[in-house]
Amino acid sequence: MSKPVPDKAEIALEYPDKFYVGTFERSSRFEAHLDPSGLALTLERPGAEDVRKSIHMHLNYGLLAAILTEIAAGIAAIPEDDGLHRGQLRDAAAALHEALKPR
């Protein structure tokens, strides 16, 4: 089930002869779920044909783990006084940690 995008995502796709860029803001929706091999992520911007767009991405668990590790290493770049973003990330990481505990 898709949910509203709570902030903003910018996507760029570069080929040797083409460049695509798109923004997904609060009027957009997202869906993220795990399947047997990794994370499936969809971002959708609804609307008329000339503004409607979507991206579908799949990250295998190994790559997803490497990305999370890189994010953890870069957290220091978020200013200490940016409580909103640090809190959002802390709460999401705590939820992930709790969900990964053995049952």
Rank of each mutant, 00 (worst) to 15 (best):
D91C: 10
A65Q: 05
Y15M: 14
A94I: 10
L64E: 02
P79A: 15
A40H: 04
A93E: 05
L59Q: 09
R26A: 12
A95R: 15
S27P: 04
Q88S: 07
L41I: 02
T69M: 02
K8S: 06
K18D: 15
H97C: 14
L41P: 00
H97W: 13
R29I: 00
T23N: 13
G83M: 05
G87P: 02
K101W: 11
L100W: 10
R52M: 03
P6S: 14
H33C: 05
A76W: 09
G74F: 03
M57K: 01
A48W: 12
R86C: 02
G62F: 01
D17E: 14
A99R: 13
S37Q: 12
T23I: 08
S28R: 02
D81K: 07
A32T: 01
F24P: 01
A73W: 04
T69C: 03
R86P: 00
H85N: 05
D7C: 04
G22Y: 01
P4Q: 13
E10R: 07
A40N: 10
S28E: 07
E10L: 07
R26K: 13
L64H: 01
G83P: 01
R90P: 00
A40W: 02
T69N: 05
D82L: 04
D7G: 08
H58A: 10
A77R: 08
D7H: 05
M1Y: 08
E49Y: 10
M57I: 05
E98T: 13
E14M: 10
E10H: 09
P16L: 11
L41F: 04
T23F: 09
A92Y: 05
A9E: 06
G47T: 08
A40Y: 03
D7T: 02
A73N: 11
D7W: 04
Y15L: 14
P36I: 07
L13R: 13
A48F: 13
H58P: 00
A65E: 08
A99I: 06
D17G: 13
A48K: 15
G47Y: 10
P4A: 12
L64R: 01
V51M: 14
L63N: 09
D81P: 00
M57Q: 06
P6W: 12
T23M: 09
R90E: 10
P79M: 13
E31D: 06
P4H: 11
S37D: 14
P79Q: 15
D35Y: 03
L59C: 10
L100C: 12
K18C: 12
E14F: 06
G22P: 02
L39E: 06
R29C: 01
L43I: 00
K53T: 11
G74Y: 04
I71G: 02
D35M: 02
L84F: 03
L43S: 00
A94F: 10
R90T: 03
R103C: 10
E14L: 10
